[in-house]
Write a protein that binds this DNA or RNA. Structure first.
Lengths: 232, 232
DNA sequence: CCAAAAGTGTTGGCTCTACACCCATGA
DNA sequence: TCATGGGTGTAGAGCCAACACTTTTGG
């Protein structure tokens, strides 16, 4: 979402010729059913009504950009305190068909896609959509999506960013599947485990996960804060 | 520079409570005398008058962000068509003591620091300043400078970005000195040459540079467009 | 002929990749 | 006991870092 809700200002000047407005838009990723999904909302009003887009909105007076992104994300999903990272600022005056709205794009990562509440009144609908099969998106959001995905992939390879996509405890196989899915290539199980462990990324919990077969030891990330590493 | 030139609008509303304004600021790097320098301007008006900062200004109505950055850079330096890259957007409402101005920071690279014309009437002065010894800067520009430097260093290691900091032809020693200075570590001459050549970064011109000692073969970059590589 | 910068190869250590079998459990 | 996913070690290849001497020119 990008355009202001009330597009007309008090003045008579056409919106197209007004000063650029400033918005944030947030691409939220989560793993669900072993697939990477992102959160889309359906727009209500204006030329873009009915189209799907990433949630977003204008930056408030005196508001921090990060705060605006958190606020819009919470409004659209009910999630508070998600991991957020600024991506890039998209400023083409024609990206929004109605007004000149410059958008600071953010990426959010979430480990519990199920927990999002139904969308707020601001939007006509909301859904988690597989990244590999996005519908046509409003504005320049297809480009934003590509940018976000690229950033996420890159950071997988040199940070512990996966901490934000996984629950507090997980098995090695789950971590490996996440990497393989996102990087779109198979990983050698033994080599992968060696590298991850050598990087000091994980801490084994004492516990096991029991399931249909041999139990798997559970791990947690050593730190939740951003950690730079060499691997893959 | 960030604040609008005329800070008071026609309306009575205090500027602090107005919608955020949008600006661009540009950190311009160049090598001069074997040292990395960046271009600073001295501000004229307002609370920040007399302080040094990176050139910048408000984004115009209907203007692309990249165009705004090019325009402000040209206004401050006379340079057209420099390499420009968006860095990050700084939006803390308190970054500008007067108004809420969100700034999209850019990095510019220039190979001919000498050719910049004297500063325009907008600024009280201008200078190339060694990056290692910047004066106190206005706004949050010290943070912006750090960000730009970090990006430049990182890109040296996996792209041909140095093409924009060197003249069309140069010797191997000059390239190596650039890398060593920016990365702040000594490089092994033989290993460095091997890697650069293996990456296909350079093309030997037929010519030589003659000087006080043994002549050096001149090189140019194989491409001027961005090239991703593995090295260092 | 001397000073100064340009240019050039090799080796040992280390890292990375490729690869296959046994284990533990629930059903 | 069987099906299924969990867990483990090694050897060969390729890569990278460390290292010093010869060449060419101008003065």
């Amino acid at each position: 979402m990008t355009a202001a809700a009330p597009l007309a200002t008090g003045r008579a000047r056409p919106v197209r010729l007004a000063r650029p407005r400033l918005a944030v838009d947030t691409v939220t990723f989560a793993i669900e059913g072993g697939r990477l999904k992102c959160y889309l909302v359906q727009l209500k009003r204006g030329l873009v009504g009915g189209k799907w887009a990433f949630p977003g909105g204008l930056v408030g007076r005196g508001e921090l950009l990060d705060d605006a992104a958190h606020r819009e994300l919470a409004a659209a999903t009910g999630l508070n305190g998600a991991y957020l990272e600024q991506l890039f600022t998209f400023g083409d005056p024609s990206r929004d068909p109605i007004a000149h709205v410059v958008s600071v794009a953010y990426m959010a990562l979430v480990d519990t896609p199920c927990r999002v509440s139904a969308c707020c009144a601001k939007y006509a609908g909301a859904q988690w959509c597989e990244v590999a099969a996005l519908p046509p998106l409003a504005y320049d959001h297809a480009i934003v999506a590509g940018y976000a995905l690229k950033r996420l992939r890159a950071k997988l390879e040199y940070t512990n960013i996966a901490v934000h996509l996984l629950p507090p405890s997980f098995t090695f196989a789950e971590l490996e599947e996440l990497y393989a899915k996102l990087l779109e290539r198979p990983l050698d199980r033994r080599n992968f485990r060696r590298r991850i462990m050598a990087a000091g990324l994980l801490r084994p919990l004492g516990r096991m996960r029991y399931g249909a077969h041999r139990p798997a030891t559970l791990y947690a990330f050593a730190q939740r804060s951003l950690q730079m590493i060499e691997m893959l």
